[in-house]
């Protein structure tokens, strides 16, 4: 079997100290293979978002090991981590995180701007990805003037613009009505099927999770089904 694109081995993460200490993850192991779609499912506070942040190298685990393409993440320099997140990862968040008064195009090309791509190429690539998501006619609009579904498509366009290998999506349909939500889901899964982009989706929506190749259920900082006794004890 190939080396998994992302691998987590017994990772632990806690917040706070003393009596206020909260163990978000208490030893979770997970392999994400290139090209698959995986759902991290759990209730609010289960630690699923923390797991995604750790996999995306946005945070450092207190214990355990995270590898990217077989390389230990702790061995990567800050610059390499930044570059990895910039070039290989795309992010889709529930709250969109768009700059309200900037144009749609400017929002979409932000990762390219950070990468230092020239203004001309940024525009060409930004327009291409907007066209792919049927938003090219909105390129000059301000992000604030879009509907929720349009905003989430802009966010996906922004995640796609760097041709990433992995897209991390945190509750991608959480803020959308059912019809728009399923449209956004269709876009994400077609990217997975047609372009082979690995999907890591964090959700509490069981229907969305069911569309993924594989589901990981997180409960109280542990993967359900592996150590149910710990979950029951908590």
């Amino acid at each position: 079997m190939n080396t998994p694109i992302l691998s987590a081995q017994g990772i632990r993460k806690s917040y706070g100290r003393g009596s206020a200490r909260f163990d978000a993850l208490r030893g979770v192991s997970l392999d994400v293979n290139a090209g698959e779609s995986i759902a991290i499912v759990g209730k609010s506070g289960s630690g699923k978002s923390t797991l995604m942040h750790l996999l995306a190298l946005l945070d450092i685990p207190d214990g355990g090991r995270i590898s990217v393409n077989g390389t230990d993440a702790t061995k990567l320099s800050v610059k390499q981590v930044n570059q990895l997140r910039n070039e290989d990862f795309g992010f889709v968040f529930q709250q969109f995180f768009l700059t309200p008064n900037a144009s749609v195009l400017d929002n979409v090309v932000l990762p390219l701007e950070i990468a230092g791509v020239s203004s001309k190429e940024r525009k060409a690539r930004g327009m291409a990805v907007l066209k792919q998501l049927e938003l090219d006619d909105k390129a000059k609009n301000k992000a604030i003037n879009l509907s929720g579904g349009q905003k989430q498509r802009v966010v996906i366009a922004r995640a796609l613009v760097n041709n990433p290998r992995v897209i991390f999506a945190d509750e991608p349909t959480g803020n959308l009505d059912t019809a728009t939500g399923s449209l956004v889901e269709d876009i994400l899964f077609s990217l997975n099927k047609e372009q082979g982009i690995t999907l890591v989706i964090v959700t509490h929506d069981v229907e969305l999770a069911a569309r993924c190749d594989r589901q990981i259920y997180i409960r109280d900082g542990l993967e359900e089904g592996i150590d149910t006794t710990a979950g029951a004890a908590a």
């Binding site: 981590v81 570059q83 992010f91 700059t99």
Partner: peptide, 15 residues
Amino acid sequence: REIGLMKAMGMSGGK
């Protein structure tokens, strides 16, 4: 949030 997003997208602290 914007700063966080830019950092998540690989912008360095120096920038």
